[in-house]
Structure formats: C-alpha cells, structure tokens
C-alpha cells in the first residue's frame, strides 16, 4: 500500500513547504484541543487546584498526593469496578446482538429485514442526554412507560423498580447505552458479512452442512477480525460512559452506578471543585483507554500489512 517511488516533482521545494502549510490548521487545532490539554492534565494532576488556585493562577505542587488520595478512596475503586462491569456487560451484549441483527438484515428476501435495515441508524442519531432522559421516563417506578406496558399486557400487576434497585441499576443504565451504540456495531458486522464470499457457503452446502454449522464454522471465524475491532472500539468508548449515568441515575441508588467518568466529573466540577484529584482520576481512565488504543493501532496496522 505504501507508495515508495520518489515524487515525480521531487526537485521542487514546494511539497515540504506545502505539506507544512496545509497542515497548519490541523496542527493548531489539535495542539490547542488535544495535545496541550493532555500534557496539561498530567501537570494538573500533580498540583493542588481548586477554585481559589484557579483564581490566583498559582497551583502548588503536591507530587503524587492526588493519586494517593483517589486510590485510597474506596469510591474511586468502586467506580473503576462498576465501569468494568458496565463495559463488560454492554460490550458482550452488543457484540452478540450486532452479529444476530447483522445476519437478520442480510436477509434480502424478507421485507421486514429491509425495514429494520432502514431504521438501524435511528438510535445512532439520538443525543445521548435525550436518550438517557427518555429511558428514565421509561424506567419510572410510578408512572413509567415500561411498567405501563407490563400492566396493559397483563404480564405483571406489580411495578418493577427498573433503575432504582441497586442490584440491577448498572444493567438498567447499560441498556440505553447499548440501544444507542448498537447501530455502529451492527453496521460493522454487516459490512464484514457482505464481504464473505458466497463460494464458502455453497461449498459447505454441498457438504451438507446445516445453517447452524455454516454459521459456526464459516461465518463466525470470518467475522472474527471485525469482532475484535468492535470489541476494542466499543470497550474504549464504553469506559467513558457519562450522559446516560447523568440522566438516569446520577450514580445512584447509593453508589451502585458510580462509574469512572462520573467520579471525575463530580470531583472536578462539583463543590469543592477538587480539580487536581479530578484530573488525576481522569488520567487513570485515560491510561486504561490509551492501552486499548495502542492495541487497536497494532491490530489495524497488522490488517494493513
């Protein structure tokens, strides 16, 4: 793929200059919004920063104190644990559903499959905060939409406390998240599915393989690369879930749905505005996601090779 021959107009000096000039807008924006803040976050995480320090513009150096504080905070450790559970659950469910639905919309002859295919992008376009609020209405114990469905269909006559029960609250938050992010996973799976040559299936049919065997021995192995891509991408994004938590549970009941991003947000942007500890906790999150990103980069690199 790499183009190794020398530039035909290599003698001109312009490509170098041009290459720089054309990248100026990108360089400036990325430095201001990504590069500088990333290093600045590291800097802040080693300093005492709250509103008073912000006003004075002087941040006393505190070494590793912020990190020591958050790691000795049981709530932070719990937030990480909740994030892991949330991510593990939502990504697993998402991958299973994505493959199933991708197979479903691949049925060109079924007209309802075409309707599904048309509607797949709808959740993708819904603002996460709106999604969260709508689900919090659906979950409401007293007058929510889901309990109304239970009553009306006669499935149950007692209300279910969907998001208010500490043992299920984390799952309750993850379902709207799955709802919103599933389209992406379905599309990737579907694209990969379409890339599988029919020849494989025909050969298998000749051998007398049933549908389930064909799926297990042909489709699934061929989908494996894309499953890994979905796994890495979705895991790293699910680690940073925020909007749905804000809209539905605000961390509750108790500490049942405190996740890492909620912890950072509360530390840094709620009184007493402990920005240093907030930055430190966000940095821990960044490190975890950074590791995932590196593995993703390697993966993609190998695919290109």
């Amino acid at each position: 793929m790499a183009r190794s021959e020398p530039f035909r107009f290599g003698r001109e000096r312009s490509p170098r200059v041009l290459g720089f000039v054309m990248n100026i807008p990108t360089l400036i924006t990325l430095s201001l919004v990504l590069a500088y803040p990333i290093f600045y976050a590291a800097y802040l995480s080693f300093h005492k920063v709250s509103l008073a320090e912000l006003r004075r513009g002087v941040y006393p150096f505190v070494g590793l104190a912020n990190y020591e504080r958050i790691f000795s905070d049981p709530l932070f450790r719990l937030s990480l644990k909740n994030t892991l559970i949330f991510t593990g659950f939502s990504v697993t469910v998402e991958i299973v559903l994505a493959i199933a639905i991708a197979l479903l919309i691949d049925q060109q002859h079924i007209w309802t499959s075409r309707v599904t295919k048309f509607l797949i992008l709808v959740p993708y376009a819904v603002p996460p905060i709106a999604n969260g609020l709508i689900w919090s209405f659906m979950y409401s114990f007293e007058y929510g939409f889901l309990n109304r469905i239970l009553y009306t269909t006669g499935i149950s006559h007692t209300a279910v406390n969907w998001s208010g029960d500490p043992s299920t609250a984390l799952i309750a938050v993850s379902i709207p998240y799955i709802w919103r992010t599933l389209p992406f996973a379905i599309l990737l799976s579907h694209a990969a599915l379409q890339g599988i040559s029919q020849d494989f299936y025909e050969a298998a049919s000749v051998d007398g393989a049933g549908a389930l065997q064909r799926f297990w021995h042909i489709t699934l192995p061929l989908l494996r690369p894309i499953i890994v891509v979905i796994l890495v991408l979705r895991t790293s994004f699910a680690f940073a879930v925020f909007d749905e938590v804000l809209a539905i549970t605000q961390g509750g009941p108790g500490d049942a749905t405190w996740v890492a991003s909620w912890y950072s947000y509360k530390k840094g942007f709620a009184p007493p505005f402990d920005i240093g500890a907030g930055a430190a906790s966000a940095y821990v999150l960044a490190m975890i996601i950074g590791l995932l990103a590196i593995s993703y980069g390697r993966l993609i690199y190998r695919r290109i090779q």
């Binding site: 709530l75 029960d165 500490p166 009941p253 108790g254 500490d255």
Partner: peptide, 8 residues
Amino acid sequence: IEVSKALT
C-alpha cells in the same frame, strides 16, 4: 450514598 444504601 450511605443513607441510600441503608434505605435500599
């Protein structure tokens, strides 16, 4: 957090 946990 703690009181919510007690109440639930």
